[in-house]
Nucleic acid binder design. Structure first.
Length: 165
DNA sequence: GCCAACGTTGGC
DNA sequence: GCCAACGTTGGC
């Protein structure tokens, strides 16, 4: 009998971004980026403690026309302190954060693919498999959210994308 | 542009 | 520790 060890099951997440501030096109050009500026403790906890290398990320355009999952990315570096919190000239500067005990964290993500067909919020609402999705729950404002494997697979199929890493 | 749902702040 | 006031998010 073989022992299962070492390999954590890949998990899945959804990152929201307003395309005017950072779009999937920008991520495609950049190749990879660090996901900075998250200033919510619940999301911080996910970035710091839960999100791991190789996890999958649905990239969602919020406050946009249309609102949609527009691509996927993968995590390439696990949680580390968000440098913008210590930069007094940055919009995300947090004077209350102690460098010895940083308050805010980021992960690195790399572009994987653009949705061949953007998966609009409207389309997601119509899918029975997605009715429990956090994104679609009323009042859900979390900008970094967990996504189940089933939701991930459903959205990828709708986008005509494949997990290819 | 509106406003509901949250999160944060600060007086007590 | 409570909670009213305020600010922000983000769908509609």
């Amino acid at each position: 009998m073989t022992t299962k060890r070492g390999k954590r099951t890949r998990r899945y997440w959804l990152f929201k971004s307003e395309p005017e501030s950072y779009s999937i096109e920008q991520l495609e050009r950049d190749g990879s980026t660090f996901w900075s500026g998250v200033r919510n403790y619940q999301a911080r906890n996910l970035l710091r403690d839960e999100i791991r290398c190789d996890d999958g990320v649905l990239f969602y355009h919020s406050n946009a026309k249309p609102m949609a999952v527009v691509g996927i990315a993968k995590v390439t570096k696990e949680g580390y302190p968000d440098p913008t919190q210590f930069d007094a000239s940055d919009n995300y500067f947090d004077p209350g954060s102690d460098p010895a005990d940083p308050r805010w964290f980021v992960v690195d993500i790399a572009f994987v693919g653009k949705a061949e067909q953007p998966v609009t919020r409207e389309a997601m609402k119509e899918r029975p498999e997605l009715t429990e999705m956090m994104l679609l729950q009323r009042g859900s404002r979390l900008s970094v959210q967990p996504v189940t494997r089933r939701e991930w697979q459903t959205v990828l199929r709708m986008a005509r994308l494949q997990e290819n890493w």
